[in-house]
Write a protein that binds this DNA or RNA. Structure first.
Length: 416
RNA sequence: GUGGCUGUAGCUCAGUUGGUUAGAGCGUCGGUUUGUGGUACCGGAUGUCGGGGGUUCAAAUCCCCUCAGCCACCCCA
Protein backbone atom coordinates (compact mmCIF):
# COMPACT_ATOMS: atom_id res chain seq x y z
CA UNK A 1 0.00 0.00 0.00
CA UNK A 2 3.00 2.28 0.46
CA UNK A 3 3.36 3.53 -3.09
CA UNK A 4 5.27 6.48 -4.44
CA UNK A 5 2.84 9.34 -4.48
CA UNK A 6 2.22 12.33 -6.65
CA UNK A 7 2.57 15.90 -5.45
CA UNK A 8 -0.59 17.14 -3.78
CA UNK A 9 -2.93 18.89 -6.16
CA UNK A 10 -1.32 17.52 -9.33
CA UNK A 11 -2.71 14.96 -11.75
CA UNK A 12 -1.35 12.37 -14.12
CA UNK A 13 -3.08 12.60 -17.46
CA UNK A 14 -3.69 9.26 -19.14
CA UNK A 15 -6.39 7.24 -20.79
CA UNK A 16 -9.60 9.09 -21.56
CA UNK A 17 -8.48 12.10 -19.57
CA UNK A 18 -5.63 13.02 -21.86
CA UNK A 19 -7.78 12.38 -24.91
CA UNK A 20 -10.33 14.88 -23.60
CA UNK A 21 -7.58 17.31 -22.60
CA UNK A 22 -6.01 17.23 -26.07
CA UNK A 23 -9.40 17.50 -27.70
CA UNK A 24 -10.12 20.75 -25.88
CA UNK A 25 -6.76 22.26 -26.76
CA UNK A 26 -7.01 21.16 -30.39
CA UNK A 27 -10.42 22.84 -30.79
CA UNK A 28 -9.07 25.97 -29.14
CA UNK A 29 -6.02 26.19 -31.37
CA UNK A 30 -7.98 25.64 -34.53
CA UNK A 31 -10.47 28.34 -33.64
CA UNK A 32 -7.83 30.89 -32.60
CA UNK A 33 -5.77 30.33 -35.72
CA UNK A 34 -8.78 30.89 -37.92
CA UNK A 35 -9.49 34.21 -36.21
CA UNK A 36 -5.89 35.32 -36.69
CA UNK A 37 -4.72 35.00 -33.13
CA UNK A 38 -1.09 33.80 -33.04
CA UNK A 39 0.19 31.26 -30.60
CA UNK A 40 2.61 32.31 -27.90
CA UNK A 41 4.31 30.05 -25.40
CA UNK A 42 6.08 31.71 -22.53
CA UNK A 43 8.30 29.99 -19.94
CA UNK A 44 6.84 28.44 -16.84
CA UNK A 45 9.58 30.17 -14.85
CA UNK A 46 9.42 33.93 -14.41
CA UNK A 47 11.01 36.47 -12.10
CA UNK A 48 8.81 37.04 -9.10
CA UNK A 49 8.38 40.77 -9.81
CA UNK A 50 6.34 40.07 -12.95
CA UNK A 51 3.50 38.98 -10.72
CA UNK A 52 4.06 40.92 -7.51
CA UNK A 53 4.00 44.22 -9.42
CA UNK A 54 1.04 43.46 -11.64
CA UNK A 55 -1.39 41.36 -9.60
CA UNK A 56 -1.04 43.44 -6.46
CA UNK A 57 0.74 42.51 -3.26
CA UNK A 58 -2.47 42.06 -1.36
CA UNK A 59 -3.97 39.57 -3.81
CA UNK A 60 -4.16 36.04 -2.49
CA UNK A 61 -2.18 34.71 -5.40
CA UNK A 62 0.82 36.86 -4.57
CA UNK A 63 0.53 36.90 -0.81
CA UNK A 64 0.19 33.18 -0.22
CA UNK A 65 -0.27 31.03 -3.29
CA UNK A 66 2.80 31.46 -5.45
CA UNK A 67 5.42 28.77 -5.79
CA UNK A 68 8.43 30.98 -5.37
CA UNK A 69 12.00 29.98 -4.68
CA UNK A 70 15.56 31.13 -4.94
CA UNK A 71 17.57 29.21 -7.50
CA UNK A 72 21.26 28.27 -7.27
CA UNK A 73 22.19 31.64 -8.73
CA UNK A 74 20.19 33.50 -6.05
CA UNK A 75 17.50 34.52 -8.52
CA UNK A 76 13.98 34.94 -7.12
CA UNK A 77 11.81 32.82 -9.40
CA UNK A 78 8.21 31.61 -9.48
CA UNK A 79 6.26 28.96 -11.31
CA UNK A 80 3.82 31.21 -13.16
CA UNK A 81 0.44 31.46 -11.42
CA UNK A 82 -1.37 32.90 -14.45
CA UNK A 83 -0.80 33.77 -18.08
CA UNK A 84 -1.69 37.39 -18.72
CA UNK A 85 1.13 39.09 -16.85
CA UNK A 86 3.67 36.72 -18.40
CA UNK A 87 2.44 37.55 -21.88
CA UNK A 88 2.59 41.27 -21.14
CA UNK A 89 6.18 40.70 -20.09
CA UNK A 90 6.92 38.81 -23.31
CA UNK A 91 5.45 41.64 -25.39
CA UNK A 92 7.68 44.13 -23.60
CA UNK A 93 10.87 42.04 -23.74
CA UNK A 94 10.39 41.28 -27.43
CA UNK A 95 9.81 44.96 -28.22
CA UNK A 96 6.50 44.49 -29.96
CA UNK A 97 4.49 46.90 -27.83
CA UNK A 98 3.72 49.12 -30.80
CA UNK A 99 2.21 46.27 -32.77
CA UNK A 100 -1.34 45.08 -32.64
CA UNK A 101 -0.94 41.82 -30.76
CA UNK A 102 -3.47 39.03 -30.82
CA UNK A 103 -2.18 36.05 -28.93
CA UNK A 104 -3.46 32.73 -27.71
CA UNK A 105 -1.76 30.37 -25.30
CA UNK A 106 -2.23 27.22 -23.32
CA UNK A 107 -0.24 25.54 -20.62
CA UNK A 108 0.11 24.72 -16.94
CA UNK A 109 -0.27 27.29 -14.15
CA UNK A 110 0.66 26.84 -10.51
CA UNK A 111 -1.02 28.02 -7.36
CA UNK A 112 -0.43 26.56 -3.91
CA UNK A 113 -4.01 26.33 -2.68
CA UNK A 114 -5.82 23.59 -0.85
CA UNK A 115 -7.10 21.30 -3.61
CA UNK A 116 -10.81 20.64 -3.97
CA UNK A 117 -13.35 20.15 -6.70
CA UNK A 118 -12.27 22.18 -9.73
CA UNK A 119 -9.13 23.38 -8.02
CA UNK A 120 -5.63 22.04 -8.42
CA UNK A 121 -2.14 23.22 -7.60
CA UNK A 122 -1.00 22.54 -11.14
CA UNK A 123 -3.85 23.26 -13.52
CA UNK A 124 -4.11 24.15 -17.18
CA UNK A 125 -5.42 27.22 -18.87
CA UNK A 126 -6.20 28.21 -22.41
CA UNK A 127 -6.50 31.91 -23.01
CA UNK A 128 -6.30 34.80 -25.42
CA UNK A 129 -5.05 38.39 -25.18
CA UNK A 130 -5.92 41.20 -27.57
CA UNK A 131 -3.36 43.90 -26.85
CA UNK A 132 -2.96 47.40 -28.23
CA UNK A 133 -6.51 48.25 -29.19
CA UNK A 134 -8.29 50.49 -26.71
CA UNK A 135 -11.59 49.89 -28.43
CA UNK A 136 -14.66 48.13 -27.15
CA UNK A 137 -14.87 46.22 -30.43
CA UNK A 138 -11.86 44.22 -29.33
CA UNK A 139 -13.69 43.34 -26.10
CA UNK A 140 -16.54 42.08 -28.23
CA UNK A 141 -14.22 40.16 -30.49
CA UNK A 142 -12.63 38.45 -27.53
CA UNK A 143 -16.05 37.50 -26.17
CA UNK A 144 -16.99 36.12 -29.57
CA UNK A 145 -13.97 33.82 -29.44
CA UNK A 146 -15.15 32.62 -26.04
CA UNK A 147 -18.67 32.06 -27.38
CA UNK A 148 -17.43 30.07 -30.36
CA UNK A 149 -15.00 28.07 -28.27
CA UNK A 150 -17.65 27.05 -25.77
CA UNK A 151 -20.08 26.23 -28.56
CA UNK A 152 -17.44 24.09 -30.27
CA UNK A 153 -17.14 22.11 -27.07
CA UNK A 154 -20.93 21.93 -26.77
CA UNK A 155 -20.99 23.42 -23.28
CA UNK A 156 -22.17 26.96 -24.01
CA UNK A 157 -25.72 26.09 -23.00
CA UNK A 158 -24.61 24.92 -19.60
CA UNK A 159 -23.08 28.32 -18.86
CA UNK A 160 -24.21 31.86 -18.18
CA UNK A 161 -22.25 34.91 -19.27
CA UNK A 162 -22.10 37.51 -16.54
CA UNK A 163 -20.71 40.95 -17.21
CA UNK A 164 -19.94 44.08 -15.31
CA UNK A 165 -17.83 47.18 -15.60
CA UNK A 166 -15.22 48.18 -13.08
CA UNK A 167 -14.79 51.56 -14.75
CA UNK A 168 -11.50 53.37 -15.11
CA UNK A 169 -9.14 54.05 -12.22
CA UNK A 170 -10.86 57.27 -11.21
CA UNK A 171 -14.42 55.98 -11.14
CA UNK A 172 -13.28 52.78 -9.54
CA UNK A 173 -11.60 54.76 -6.80
CA UNK A 174 -14.70 56.88 -6.19
CA UNK A 175 -16.86 53.81 -6.03
CA UNK A 176 -14.45 52.10 -3.67
CA UNK A 177 -14.68 55.06 -1.29
CA UNK A 178 -18.43 55.13 -1.37
CA UNK A 179 -18.72 51.40 -0.84
CA UNK A 180 -16.26 51.58 2.03
CA UNK A 181 -18.29 54.28 3.73
CA UNK A 182 -21.50 52.38 3.27
CA UNK A 183 -20.02 49.18 4.68
CA UNK A 184 -18.45 51.13 7.51
CA UNK A 185 -21.92 52.34 8.50
CA UNK A 186 -23.14 48.75 8.65
CA UNK A 187 -19.95 47.44 10.16
CA UNK A 188 -21.49 45.83 13.22
CA UNK A 189 -23.84 43.70 11.10
CA UNK A 190 -21.16 42.35 8.80
CA UNK A 191 -19.72 38.87 9.19
CA UNK A 192 -16.24 38.59 10.66
CA UNK A 193 -14.97 37.56 7.28
CA UNK A 194 -16.36 40.64 5.59
CA UNK A 195 -15.00 42.89 8.32
CA UNK A 196 -11.64 41.50 7.34
CA UNK A 197 -12.35 41.93 3.62
CA UNK A 198 -13.34 45.54 4.21
CA UNK A 199 -9.78 46.30 5.24
CA UNK A 200 -8.06 44.51 2.39
CA UNK A 201 -10.42 44.71 -0.57
CA UNK A 202 -13.94 46.07 -0.01
CA UNK A 203 -15.09 44.92 -3.45
CA UNK A 204 -14.83 41.35 -2.24
CA UNK A 205 -17.63 41.90 0.25
CA UNK A 206 -19.96 42.13 -2.73
CA UNK A 207 -19.83 38.42 -3.45
CA UNK A 208 -19.97 37.27 0.15
CA UNK A 209 -22.03 34.16 0.77
CA UNK A 210 -23.10 35.09 4.30
CA UNK A 211 -26.83 35.73 4.54
CA UNK A 212 -26.51 38.96 6.50
CA UNK A 213 -23.84 40.30 4.18
CA UNK A 214 -26.03 39.63 1.18
CA UNK A 215 -28.82 41.73 2.71
CA UNK A 216 -26.46 44.59 3.39
CA UNK A 217 -24.90 44.36 -0.05
CA UNK A 218 -28.30 44.56 -1.73
CA UNK A 219 -28.62 48.16 -0.59
CA UNK A 220 -25.05 49.11 -1.28
CA UNK A 221 -24.14 51.74 -3.87
CA UNK A 222 -24.13 50.42 -7.44
CA UNK A 223 -20.85 50.62 -9.33
CA UNK A 224 -22.67 51.52 -12.53
CA UNK A 225 -23.76 54.83 -10.95
CA UNK A 226 -20.15 55.79 -10.38
CA UNK A 227 -18.89 55.28 -13.90
CA UNK A 228 -17.70 58.52 -15.49
CA UNK A 229 -18.76 59.50 -18.99
CA UNK A 230 -16.00 57.55 -20.73
CA UNK A 231 -16.46 54.40 -18.67
CA UNK A 232 -20.21 54.52 -18.96
CA UNK A 233 -20.24 54.88 -22.71
CA UNK A 234 -17.75 52.01 -23.03
CA UNK A 235 -20.04 49.81 -20.98
CA UNK A 236 -23.05 50.86 -23.01
CA UNK A 237 -21.22 50.11 -26.23
CA UNK A 238 -20.35 46.69 -24.91
CA UNK A 239 -23.94 45.93 -24.03
CA UNK A 240 -25.26 47.23 -27.33
CA UNK A 241 -22.71 45.07 -29.08
CA UNK A 242 -23.78 41.96 -27.20
CA UNK A 243 -27.39 42.68 -28.07
CA UNK A 244 -26.59 43.12 -31.77
CA UNK A 245 -24.58 39.92 -31.76
CA UNK A 246 -27.41 38.06 -29.98
CA UNK A 247 -25.13 36.96 -27.20
CA UNK A 248 -26.98 36.10 -23.99
CA UNK A 249 -25.66 37.84 -20.90
CA UNK A 250 -26.58 38.93 -17.41
CA UNK A 251 -25.37 42.14 -15.87
CA UNK A 252 -24.02 41.25 -12.47
CA UNK A 253 -23.09 44.32 -10.48
CA UNK A 254 -21.45 42.18 -7.84
CA UNK A 255 -18.96 40.70 -10.28
CA UNK A 256 -15.51 41.85 -9.21
CA UNK A 257 -12.00 40.83 -10.05
CA UNK A 258 -9.37 39.47 -7.72
CA UNK A 259 -6.45 40.86 -9.65
CA UNK A 260 -5.45 44.50 -9.55
CA UNK A 261 -4.84 45.09 -13.22
CA UNK A 262 -8.44 44.92 -14.44
CA UNK A 263 -10.49 47.95 -15.56
CA UNK A 264 -13.72 48.45 -17.42
CA UNK A 265 -15.19 45.25 -18.84
CA UNK A 266 -15.21 42.21 -16.63
CA UNK A 267 -16.93 38.99 -17.61
CA UNK A 268 -17.26 35.41 -16.50
CA UNK A 269 -18.85 32.28 -17.84
CA UNK A 270 -20.22 30.40 -14.85
CA UNK A 271 -22.11 27.16 -14.45
CA UNK A 272 -25.68 27.34 -13.28
CA UNK A 273 -25.22 24.53 -10.79
CA UNK A 274 -24.36 25.64 -7.29
CA UNK A 275 -20.90 24.18 -7.02
CA UNK A 276 -18.15 26.14 -5.40
CA UNK A 277 -15.71 26.60 -8.28
CA UNK A 278 -18.24 27.48 -10.92
CA UNK A 279 -16.21 29.88 -13.05
CA UNK A 280 -15.14 28.16 -16.24
CA UNK A 281 -13.85 31.12 -18.21
CA UNK A 282 -13.12 34.63 -17.00
CA UNK A 283 -11.60 37.77 -18.36
CA UNK A 284 -11.72 41.48 -18.82
CA UNK A 285 -9.91 44.61 -19.84
CA UNK A 286 -6.66 45.74 -18.31
CA UNK A 287 -5.01 49.13 -18.56
CA UNK A 288 -2.37 49.40 -15.89
CA UNK A 289 -0.81 46.03 -16.46
CA UNK A 290 1.91 47.06 -18.90
CA UNK A 291 2.91 50.16 -17.03
CA UNK A 292 3.06 48.26 -13.76
CA UNK A 293 5.85 46.03 -15.01
CA UNK A 294 7.81 48.75 -16.76
CA UNK A 295 6.25 48.87 -20.19
CA UNK A 296 4.48 51.52 -22.21
CA UNK A 297 1.00 52.67 -21.27
CA UNK A 298 -0.94 50.30 -23.50
CA UNK A 299 -4.05 48.32 -22.75
CA UNK A 300 -5.55 45.00 -23.66
CA UNK A 301 -8.42 42.66 -23.13
CA UNK A 302 -8.46 38.89 -22.78
CA UNK A 303 -9.65 35.86 -20.95
CA UNK A 304 -8.49 32.55 -19.59
CA UNK A 305 -10.38 29.31 -19.15
CA UNK A 306 -9.56 26.41 -16.86
CA UNK A 307 -9.13 23.28 -18.94
CA UNK A 308 -9.99 21.05 -15.98
CA UNK A 309 -13.13 23.06 -15.32
CA UNK A 310 -14.16 22.66 -18.94
CA UNK A 311 -13.55 18.93 -18.61
CA UNK A 312 -15.94 18.82 -15.66
CA UNK A 313 -18.67 20.13 -17.96
CA UNK A 314 -18.13 17.58 -20.72
CA UNK A 315 -17.75 14.11 -19.31
CA UNK A 316 -19.35 12.47 -22.31
CA UNK A 317 -16.92 12.76 -25.21
CA UNK A 318 -17.19 9.85 -27.58
CA UNK A 319 -14.15 9.39 -29.76
CA UNK A 320 -13.80 6.89 -32.52
CA UNK A 321 -11.26 4.27 -31.53
CA UNK A 322 -10.64 1.75 -34.29
CA UNK A 323 -8.08 -0.94 -33.62
CA UNK A 324 -6.81 -3.82 -35.68
CA UNK A 325 -4.46 -6.59 -34.52
CA UNK A 326 -1.82 -8.58 -36.35
CA UNK A 327 -0.29 -11.83 -35.22
CA UNK A 328 1.31 -15.00 -36.51
CA UNK A 329 0.67 -18.65 -35.83
CA UNK A 330 4.29 -19.37 -35.02
CA UNK A 331 7.48 -17.58 -34.08
CA UNK A 332 9.13 -18.06 -37.45
CA UNK A 333 6.62 -15.69 -39.03
CA UNK A 334 6.69 -12.92 -36.42
CA UNK A 335 9.30 -10.88 -38.27
CA UNK A 336 7.31 -11.19 -41.47
CA UNK A 337 4.29 -9.76 -39.68
CA UNK A 338 6.35 -6.86 -38.33
CA UNK A 339 7.58 -6.15 -41.84
CA UNK A 340 4.03 -6.17 -43.19
CA UNK A 341 2.97 -3.66 -40.52
CA UNK A 342 5.96 -1.42 -41.19
CA UNK A 343 5.06 -1.25 -44.90
CA UNK A 344 1.42 -0.31 -44.36
CA UNK A 345 0.22 3.05 -45.62
CA UNK A 346 -3.07 3.78 -43.95
CA UNK A 347 -4.93 6.56 -42.18
CA UNK A 348 -3.25 7.27 -38.85
CA UNK A 349 -6.52 7.28 -36.94
CA UNK A 350 -6.62 3.51 -37.26
CA UNK A 351 -4.54 1.85 -34.57
CA UNK A 352 -2.45 -1.19 -35.46
CA UNK A 353 -1.42 -3.49 -32.65
CA UNK A 354 1.07 -6.33 -33.05
CA UNK A 355 0.57 -9.23 -30.67
CA UNK A 356 3.92 -10.84 -30.00
CA UNK A 357 3.37 -13.37 -27.25
CA UNK A 358 1.11 -16.14 -26.11
CA UNK A 359 -0.15 -19.25 -27.79
CA UNK A 360 -2.58 -19.08 -30.64
CA UNK A 361 -5.59 -18.99 -28.42
CA UNK A 362 -4.09 -16.33 -26.17
CA UNK A 363 -3.37 -14.14 -29.14
CA UNK A 364 -7.02 -14.15 -30.11
CA UNK A 365 -7.97 -13.49 -26.55
CA UNK A 366 -5.62 -10.51 -26.33
CA UNK A 367 -6.88 -9.06 -29.59
CA UNK A 368 -10.37 -9.26 -28.27
CA UNK A 369 -9.46 -7.77 -24.92
CA UNK A 370 -7.96 -4.60 -26.33
CA UNK A 371 -11.19 -4.07 -28.26
CA UNK A 372 -9.98 -4.70 -31.78
CA UNK A 373 -12.50 -4.68 -34.60
CA UNK A 374 -10.75 -7.66 -36.07
CA UNK A 375 -7.41 -9.31 -36.60
CA UNK A 376 -5.00 -10.35 -39.33
CA UNK A 377 -3.50 -13.79 -38.86
CA UNK A 378 -0.44 -14.96 -40.76
CA UNK A 379 0.14 -18.72 -40.76
CA UNK A 380 2.19 -21.06 -42.93
CA UNK A 381 -0.74 -21.82 -45.17
CA UNK A 382 -1.36 -18.14 -45.82
CA UNK A 383 2.34 -17.39 -46.21
CA UNK A 384 2.64 -19.95 -49.00
CA UNK A 385 -0.23 -18.23 -50.84
CA UNK A 386 1.20 -14.73 -50.17
CA UNK A 387 -2.06 -13.93 -48.41
CA UNK A 388 -3.19 -13.22 -44.86
CA UNK A 389 -6.39 -14.14 -43.03
CA UNK A 390 -8.67 -11.36 -41.81
CA UNK A 391 -11.13 -12.18 -39.08
CA UNK A 392 -13.90 -9.77 -38.18
CA UNK A 393 -14.64 -10.13 -34.46
CA UNK A 394 -18.19 -8.89 -34.52
CA UNK A 395 -19.36 -11.31 -37.20
CA UNK A 396 -16.75 -14.04 -36.77
CA UNK A 397 -16.38 -14.17 -40.57
CA UNK A 398 -12.93 -14.84 -42.04
CA UNK A 399 -11.54 -14.05 -45.46
CA UNK A 400 -8.20 -14.10 -47.26
CA UNK A 401 -6.52 -10.84 -48.28
CA UNK A 402 -3.58 -10.46 -50.68
CA UNK A 403 -0.48 -9.35 -48.78
CA UNK A 404 -0.05 -6.39 -51.11
CA UNK A 405 -3.63 -5.25 -50.67
CA UNK A 406 -3.89 -4.87 -46.91
CA UNK A 407 -3.85 -1.05 -46.98
CA UNK A 408 -6.55 -0.93 -49.60
CA UNK A 409 -8.60 -3.44 -47.66
CA UNK A 410 -8.35 -1.43 -44.43
CA UNK A 411 -8.98 1.92 -46.03
CA UNK A 412 -12.08 0.55 -47.65
CA UNK A 413 -13.27 -1.03 -44.43
CA UNK A 414 -12.71 1.94 -42.11
CA UNK A 415 -12.65 5.09 -44.17
CA UNK A 416 -15.27 4.75 -46.88
C1' G B 1 -4.55 28.55 6.31
C1' U B 2 -9.65 26.63 8.75
C1' G B 3 -13.52 22.90 8.96
C1' G B 4 -16.35 18.15 7.60
C1' C B 5 -16.28 13.18 5.51
C1' U B 6 -13.40 9.02 3.90
C1' G B 7 -8.97 5.47 3.76
C1' U B 8 -9.92 -2.97 3.89
C1' A B 9 -6.90 -7.23 -2.66
C1' G B 10 -5.52 -3.89 -9.36
C1' C B 11 -11.01 -1.67 -9.09
C1' U B 12 -15.99 -1.24 -6.40
C1' C B 13 -17.10 -2.41 -1.69
C1' A B 14 -18.87 -6.03 2.79
C1' G B 15 -16.82 -7.03 7.59
C1' U B 16 -22.35 -7.67 12.85
C1' U B 17 -21.98 -5.34 20.40
C1' G B 18 -13.53 -5.71 19.76
C1' G B 19 -12.94 -12.72 19.49
C1' U B 20 -9.69 -18.16 15.66
C1' U B 21 -5.86 -18.69 9.39
C1' A B 22 -9.95 -10.90 6.77
C1' G B 23 -14.41 -11.77 2.58
C1' A B 24 -17.58 -10.86 -2.18
C1' G B 25 -18.19 -9.06 -7.18
C1' C B 26 -15.33 -7.35 -11.19
C1' G B 27 -10.47 -7.71 -13.13
C1' U B 28 -6.04 -10.81 -13.47
C1' C B 29 -3.67 -15.67 -14.31
C1' G B 30 -4.24 -20.95 -15.59
C1' G B 31 -7.45 -24.92 -17.47
C1' U B 32 -11.95 -27.16 -20.47
C1' U B 33 -6.08 -31.65 -25.31
C1' U B 34 -2.59 -29.87 -30.61
C1' G B 35 -4.66 -23.08 -36.28
C1' U B 36 -9.68 -19.58 -33.51
C1' G B 37 -11.39 -14.90 -29.59
C1' G B 38 -15.68 -12.69 -27.38
C1' U B 39 -20.28 -16.17 -24.17
C1' A B 40 -20.25 -20.69 -20.48
C1' C B 41 -17.91 -23.98 -16.83
C1' C B 42 -13.67 -25.31 -13.43
C1' G B 43 -9.42 -23.72 -10.66
C1' G B 44 -5.24 -20.51 -8.69
C1' A B 45 -2.85 -15.94 -6.86
C1' U B 46 -2.90 -11.31 -4.45
C1' G B 47 -3.79 -7.69 1.29
C1' U B 48 2.13 -4.95 6.81
C1' C B 49 -7.17 -3.48 6.86
C1' G B 50 -3.12 4.32 4.77
C1' G B 51 1.18 4.94 8.58
C1' G B 52 2.75 5.40 13.88
C1' G B 53 1.59 4.99 18.97
C1' G B 54 -1.88 3.56 22.97
C1' U B 55 -6.00 0.65 25.67
C1' U B 56 -6.92 -4.86 25.96
C1' C B 57 -5.83 -11.68 27.18
C1' A B 58 -7.39 -10.14 22.08
C1' A B 59 -8.01 -4.34 17.53
C1' A B 60 -9.83 -3.66 10.50
C1' U B 61 -13.27 -2.58 14.69
C1' C B 62 -12.06 1.75 20.69
C1' C B 63 -8.58 6.32 21.82
C1' C B 64 -4.52 9.79 20.28
C1' C B 65 -1.14 11.55 16.51
C1' U B 66 0.12 11.64 11.43
C1' C B 67 -0.36 11.15 6.09
C1' A B 68 -3.39 10.95 1.76
C1' G B 69 -8.03 11.65 -0.99
C1' C B 70 -12.70 14.06 -1.49
C1' C B 71 -15.90 18.18 -0.18
C1' A B 72 -16.75 23.09 1.83
C1' C B 73 -14.80 28.04 3.57
C1' C B 74 -11.08 31.63 2.04
C1' C B 75 -9.78 32.70 -2.94
C1' C B 76 -9.87 31.68 -7.93
C1' A B 77 -9.46 29.20 -13.95
Amino acid sequence: MQKVKKVKGTRDLLGNEIILHNHIIAKFQKLCNSLNFSQISTPILEYIQIFTKSLGLSSDIVSKEMYNFEDQGKEQLVLRPEGTAAIARAIITNSIENDLNKFFYHGPMFRRERPQSGRLRQFHQVGIEYVGANNILSDLEVIIVAEEFLKDLKIRKKLVLEINSLGNEISRKKYNESLKNYLQENFSHLSDLSKERLKKNPLRVLDSKEENDIKIVQNSPNIIDFLDYESKSMFEDLINGLEKLSINYNINRYLVRGLDYYNHSAFEYVTEEKKSQNTVLAGGRYNQLFASIGGKDISGVGWAAGVERIEMQMNDLKTRDDKVCFFSTNKELDLEVLKIIADLKINSSLKIHFINSGNFKKKFSKANKIGATGSFILGEDEWKLKKITWKDFSTGVQELVELGNIDKFLNKKFFE
